[in-house]
Nucleic acid binder design. Structure first.
Lengths: 199, 199
DNA sequence: CATCGATGTTCAGTTTATTAAACGATTACA
DNA sequence: TGTAATCGTTTAATAAACTGAACATCGATG
């Protein structure tokens, strides 16, 4: 910091105090709530610049500043440090990415290449279509996934949206805020699965 | 802060960012662990001055600094903000401070003037003496109190020590580290009470 | 293709936190 | 009664956080 030479601006050097990765936590929370750095800064009463630098771990905010920022969304200081970030790896699997695991008369195509750390398995079964799901915004503790059979699905997970068409599939940690919407004119069919709450 | 005039050094002005009282939390934790500001600073790798200023709420530490300090004792960042400080109001009641509530043949003298927020009531009964308690350092979740009948008791609660003589009494949140010690040459007698763990 | 709006990042300047070294007060000990 | 040790607080100097305003990039609009 004392030498603002152009070569000194290393990208996230993971220095001696990278102990907790506050930046990543803040960024994920902000993105989950669908706020831009400026929008959050406005709410918090700080500048957008400092939010950028915090997220890049280029500075360690004072707890006063961190508190102001967290007041932007309903998260207490204690929760911020406790919060274990829901894994947000690959969410959308295109039709071509499904792995064929059953090669008989009954076509079974698996969603997700490896099942490590997964609570369940999703299969695309070529049978009668699944249920129709209206718009919802639930946040129960589980994982869920599914495949679109017919119609067009607009899936929103953590401030990010996709339009899924027949053959496309999804899988995500449902602690992330999510939402299903039928944006087509024909009925929407999905094959979905969800980890049982008692399992 | 910008004007270091002698009149401007107000004692804990409770300014616009007194939101959380980090200073008091830190000071109490430090005193509970029986550390001086310098001893803690040495462990944490900071200076004693900054600890003083934090405890006086004269500055808002960066979370990096706060983390270094909390590493001094086994407390995580999340716990620091969650921790509800055990009430540490009056601990020692001198013989003259006991309130006489029963005025009959059986002398009942109450420990503590008001019982608001208390889990139990302590009475000094003029009967056969209580049990003899050796040195201990327990930290069970309860409140306890008692009265010294005979002998000399050295009571240590949260890095603070008193010597109690017959007639003196005590009452404290036993989540605070505490310790009884017989420092006299005659047998020690105490009337003590404790909230039942199932009540 | 231009331009507008919104995004995240960077930079000089200012405010603030942090250091290093003092100060005054208290306790123990000779 | 001094003096040495330790306590918490304070202060000038320094390092770092934070501001305000720029920059570069991207997507949408005309």
């Amino acid at each position: 910091m004392s030498t603002p030479s152009p070569a000194a601006t290393a990208p996230a050097p993971a220095g001696p105090e990278a102990e907790f990765n506050i930046g990543e936590r803040l960024r994920r929370i902000r993105e989950v709530y669908g706020l831009s750095q400026r929008a959050l800064a406005r709410r918090a009463g700080v500048t957008n610049g400092i939010i950028s630098m915090i997220e890049l771990n280029r500075t360690s905010p004072s707890v006063a500043t961190l508190k102001k920022i967290l007041d932007g969304f309903p998260i207490a200081l204690a929760d911020f440090f406790t919060f274990d970030l829901p894994a947000q790896d690959q969410v959308v699997y295109r039709a071509a990415e499904l792995v064929e695991i059953g090669g008989g008369a009954l076509s079974l195509r698996q969603v997700g290449r490896n099942l490590r750390g997964r609570a369940m398995q999703i299969l695309h079964e070529r049978i009668a279509p699944g249920a129709d799901t209206g718009a919802e915004m639930l946040t129960h503790e589980a994982e869920e996934g599914g495949v679109v059979i017919r119609g067009r699905l607009e899936l929103t997970v953590a401030a990010q949206s996709w339009t899924l068409e027949p053959g496309d599939a999804y899988y995500f940690d449902s602690r992330l805020p999510h939402r299903f919407r039928n944006v087509g004119d024909e009925p929407l069919e999905i094959v979905s699965a969800c980890t049982p709450p008692s399992f």
